[in-house]
Design a protein around this nucleic acid. Structure first.
Length: 262
DNA sequence: CTGCAGGCCCTTA
DNA sequence: TAAGGGCCTGCA
């Protein structure tokens, strides 16, 4: 099945390169593979707003509307950002016009962003691919990882993060990590809950909140964002004026700043 | 050979 | 509360 979709505020290449996900791949010029929720989706970009989704309408409704956050009006969010009158932010949203915050699987997000720490994106993608390979490309559940030892994880190239992954699998199996409970917590409580686990600090916790729990007020500060704040805002960037969508602004900033390097 | 990549943990003071 | 060293690994 091939569905033709006209989509505003959506650019699959920008989303794939905005650092929020590690399993969207460029197969060919305008051909993309999206792996998420045990699904594999092929997307073809025709023009700026015209896309072909290789799936049924039911799959589109059941998975991809949610995953790509199509129910959220990003034009409205951009309008709010324009109204702030910050020229750097205006440039950032003009440049990353097609970025959206994905709603990713919570378990996958937790594991992926523990892996991401002090690591580069190509290597993160490689490790996650190696993790998924034995499971037909699906992201393994905690149960499927229950037999893995710390050295199994080291064998994937995880380095010192192997223990963190080993620990978080155990925490899930011991029900110390309860995903349903986590989903029900208010954002600041959820952050405290996450940071109790080995390998989850302030930054990783914020990424999990933003990408796994869609708490768009979460504002992860990595080296890139810190650099922006230091260089362009004299070390003082007030996120309170962003009406609880600072995380979306962070995504535009991150993508824009990184683009300057490449 | 160093330096670094979307940090975190642990120790000190 | 803040600052600093160490850390797996792979690549430039």
């Amino acid at each position: 099945m091939a569905l033709k979709k006209v989509l505003k505020d959506f650019d699959i290449a920008q989303i794939a390169n905005s650092g929020q996900c590690f399993r969207i791949s460029n197969l060919d010029d305008d051909l993309w593979e999206v792996l998420a929720f045990n699904q594999r989706l092929i997307i073809k970009k025709l023009t700026q707003e015209d896309y072909i989704f290789e799936c049924t309408e039911k799959e589109f409704q059941d998975y991809w509307i949610e995953y790509f956050d199509f129910k959220t009006n990003y034009s409205q969010i951009k309008q709010k950002i324009y109204q702030i009158g910050d020229s750097y932010l205006n440039d950032a949203i003009n440049y990353g016009y097609g970025i959206r915050i994905l709603k990713q699987d919570l378990w996958e997000t937790i594991v992926s962003f523990i892996i991401s720490q002090q690591n580069n994106i190509p290597r993160i993608r490689g490790i996650i691919k190696k993790l998924c390979d034995p499971f037909d490309g699906r992201f393994p559940s905690p149960f499927e990882l229950s037999g893995y030892s710390e050295s199994n994880f080291i064998g994937l190239g995880l380095g010192y993060r192997a223990r963190y992954i080993f620990d978080i699998v155990r925490a899930f199996l011991d029900e110390k990590l309860n995903l349903e409970k986590l989903k029900g917590l208010e954002t600041s409580e959820a952050k405290v809950y996450l940071k109790r686990f080995n390998g989850i600090g302030e930054k990783v916790a914020n990424c999990i909140l933003l990408y796994g729990l869609h708490r768009i007020e979460a504002f992860p500060i990595d080296v890139w964002i810190k650099r922006i704040i230091d260089l362009r805002y004299n070390g003082n960037f007030d996120i309170t004026k962003f009406e609880n969508f600072a995380g979306i602004i962070q995504q535009y900033m991150f993508f824009y700043e990184r683009s300057k390097k490449f």
